[in-house]
Design a protein around this nucleic acid. Structure first.
Lengths: 239, 239
DNA sequence: ACAAATGTCAAACGGATGTTTCAAATCTAT
DNA sequence: ATAGATTTGAAACATCCGTTTGACATTTGT
């Protein structure tokens, strides 16, 4: 039952864990197993018995290391959302370059995170379950992990549009961009069945990312350049 | 684990009694209530007790009219997907007018289906659950309900792009459009928390639909007009 | 070395779940 | 109206759920 050693070479990221947690094998194994099970069935449909069986741990381990099932799920959700995809996106947003270059970089980072490098796409599937049936943990994750990234993206899109980040148009455009690459993460099985030629290879993902950037920049540039000439135009920035 | 047999082994009322009676057949009430409950919690997390309570029926009614919980779910999924907003989208696609007008109409139909002020949005939420945890029933629904609509949309987008419907660019653009309004259907709670000013009123949904159309048409027109000048059409349509 | 703290284990608890049972109620046709 | 089929009802069934318990094993501090 122990053939399931940690596949990823890296240690568990000890985030802001207040407990002395140098090496806690069963705790880490529980998180890893729970990530797989929760991604497959969602929170409610997943059972702690299956998680513990996958992790090779006792049933009481969940209630010992975490408070209860929801505590384990919160930890998994936090680690999933904070994981690779967002780090890359954050790096892309912080790099130097024109706003257009940075936007293109963050789109590529998010698209490549679908199948790019690491662990199976636990993150996307867990998020998909959260969107379908939100749990109390979602709200906190949004504020802690998603909102900072989202604000940076609003800033970049606003700078291309020549509009403040809080402007309605800026927000709508940002959602238009996010919606495009999130479709590939959330509706992947449907897209593949509708378009069997859609293999999620790294090369095709690059093509997709470039398309999304071109598709979006067509409108952003149009509005941005139109607003650059001091034509009479109202800046009604209702948030 | 999820053997979904669509064979209807449930009992049926005798032949000619199935006409719209207008009364309260418990079977219809069960489907209506189940649509609401399944949309809220998903298949696994929904309980037949809650469904029957909402429907005002006895617990045994589910196993009598449908074979079991899964039989009820299959019926709900089928009716839910084939119903409501897809009819509108289909009507919008079939209407007369320029391709751009028809594209704008279908976008508005899909966006307005989110909340409007009418029937609850069973369809999107059930689909969201299906995307998070696909069942064998999803595949059939894609082919029967989604693909015809999708093909019509490919045709319209292709005609604006001046490209064949099967072209890669046409498919990518269509997915870009679909992704935009599907984000509002799938990620609604996240969007609202990130942008508290986003109330899904009918007026705001119109604004969103117009934005998505403008956002998309900027690129479609650019490519379409660019391809119209050089008359050579290279039809490299790798599907 | 030893006692306290920490982690693991099998078993069981109360409750919720889908499903079944079978009697009573309702409808249908003669 | 009566016999038969159809539909409903309350209760119980077996199983699974998350969680708790208390004994046992292991690590840690002194």
């Amino acid at each position: 039952m122990f053939e399931m050693q940690l596949a990823d070479g890296s240690r568990q990221m000890s985030g802001r864990d207040t407990e002395p947690n140098g090496s806690d094998p069963t705790r880490a194994k529980l998180i890893e197993a729970a990530g797989r099970v929760f991604a497959q069935h969602g929170y409610r449909a997943s059972t702690v018995r299956e998680i513990c069986q996958v992790a090779g741990a006792n049933i009481a381990a969940v209630n010992y290391h975490f408070r209860d099932k929801l505590g384990l799920y919160s930890e998994v959700l936090r680690q999933s959302v904070f994981a690779a995809q967002l780090d890359r996106a954050r790096a892309a947003l912080d790099q130097n370059g024109t706003p257009e270059e940075r936007l293109r970089a963050v789109i590529r980072a998010r698209v490549q995170s679908l199948h790019g490098s690491e662990l199976p796409d636990h993150h996307s599937r867990i998020v998909a379950h959260e969107l379908a049936a939100p749990t109390p943990a979602l709200s906190q994750v949004i504020d802690e992990a998603l909102r900072p990234l989202h604000n940076r993206m609003l800033q970049i899109v606003g700078s291309i549009l020549n509009l403040p980040p809080e402007h309605r148009k800026t927000r709508l455009c940002t959602y238009s961009i996010i919606g495009q690459f999130h479709l590939y993460a959330l509706a992947q099985p449907v897209l593949v069945q509708l378009w069997p030629g859609l293999k999620m290879t790294s090369r095709q993902l690059d093509e997709i990312a470039d398309h999304i950037a071109d598709f979006s920049l067509a409108y952003l540039r149009e509005i941005g350049s139109r607003r650059q000439k001091p034509r009479r135009r109202r800046v009604k920035a209702r948030t």
